[in-house]
Design a protein around this nucleic acid. Structure first.
Lengths: 215, 215
DNA sequence: TCATGTGAAGCACTTCACAGCA
DNA sequence: TGCTGTGAAGTGCTTCACATGA
């Protein structure tokens, strides 16, 4: 039954966005240099893990000095692609879709909601939360002409599968899936599930498990 | 610098909610028995991984037959605590807060938004999206009298730290943190971060990394 | 002297492969 | 015969500890 499939080569790399966030805080505070200890503390990892992670991409520090904040942040931004603005397609302009369209912090990560797709005739053609709304039939055109690579899937559960397949056919590269539906798409499409219910179950279980000793 | 701290004893267990979701689908389809292969396929894991995970909690299958869907689902629900309804406190009744208050699938996981907290006088005292809104000063009372263990943090970034500390003092057990702020709380509080920006960066990076071969 | 970068040891999780049972 | 449950092997990530260089 199926080998080690869902284990793509993520060699510690998904921690880079967290380092990036910590570096921005240090930059805002006016720090010019930081150490692997300080940065690791801010990011919530160990110092050696941080150094290993960074060393995977190059040498950014100076022995005896630490890391130059500005330069390291630039390097991380370059690696992550957050040094440029990238367009995102919002699929499903319901409550969650509107909340995300208004979610300011996405901008700071270099993402812009370029357009939205929704089945409701009442929404199509209008600009909602600063985003123009199109019918699902326009999906492929929007993706192609806009050069859009990423989609946020915020449709009702029953519409998730069809919408995701439409996105895959349109050539989208990655989907952030907010629906409680496990999508089965070609491996060329990166899918990340964000299921609020599963996340709540996870923390709830963690509480009942480790829930003996309190500080 | 700080040992292996943020690595709580999650022994493969965070996959249980995914099995639960798959089992509910099978139950809806009227299946009485399933196999580790079928269930693993639905959940997106390997069959041996599934069997190991389940065997951690007991013996639920019959050799040669497979697993009885109804019984296994009951067992998983019992383990996860999803067999009973649990109250959740919503902190921050903004766009995202309202979207989550309206998010139907949470109910199917056994969670109910029991109350909301918001600083806005225009919201306090009203019922929004079916949830009554209280001022932040009522946090401790709500948690105590309602026996609430879980909170959803959906306030603006600038208010996150203070709101989280108030929750910790009120005795909340776990926080699902939707703000792009790294919370530093006593270890007795379980914190799970759900940062849309970081998630998008993660998939974006995955695309640029593995982005050579398409099907 | 001090902190980075990195080989080596250690650890945990995943997969393999088969004994056991219906 | 077929599938579960599980010890054993395998793999990859994390931590340790020190050589290196400022």
């Amino acid at each position: 039954m199926r080998k080690a499939c869902e284990n793509p080569p993520k060699p510690t790399v998904e921690r880079l966005p967290i380092y990036r966030r910590a570096l921005e805080i240090l930059l805002d505070e006016g720090c010019e240099y930081t150490s692997s200890c300080e940065l690791a503390e801010l990011a919530g990892v160990t110092a050696s893990r941080l150094r290993k992670d960074l060393s995977f991409f190059g040498r950014f520090g100076t022995a005896g000095m630490g890391y130059p904040v500005r330069e390291l942040l630039d390097a991380v931004n370059s690696i992550l692609g957050t040094d440029r603005l990238r367009d995102v397609l919002l699929v499903g302009m319901g409550n969650l879709g509107r909340a995300i369209a208004n979610h300011a912090p996405l901008r700071k990560c270099g993402f812009r909601i370029a357009a939205a797709v929704d089945v409701s005739p009442a929404k199509v053609g209008r600009v909602i939360c600063g985003v123009r709304c199109y019918p699902p039939s326009e999906t492929a055109r929007l993706v192609r002409e806009g050069g859009i690579e990423f989609a946020l899937l915020t449709v009702p559960p029953g519409a998730a599968r069809e919408a995701a397949e439409r996105l895959a056919e349109a050539g989208i590269k990655a989907i952030l899936n907010f629906t409680p539906v496990h999508l089965r798409l070609p491996r060329s499409v990166v899918v990340e599930e964000v299921d609020f219910g599963i996340l709540l179950q996870k923390v709830a279980f963690a509480v009942t498990q480790g829930g003996g000793e309190n500080a």
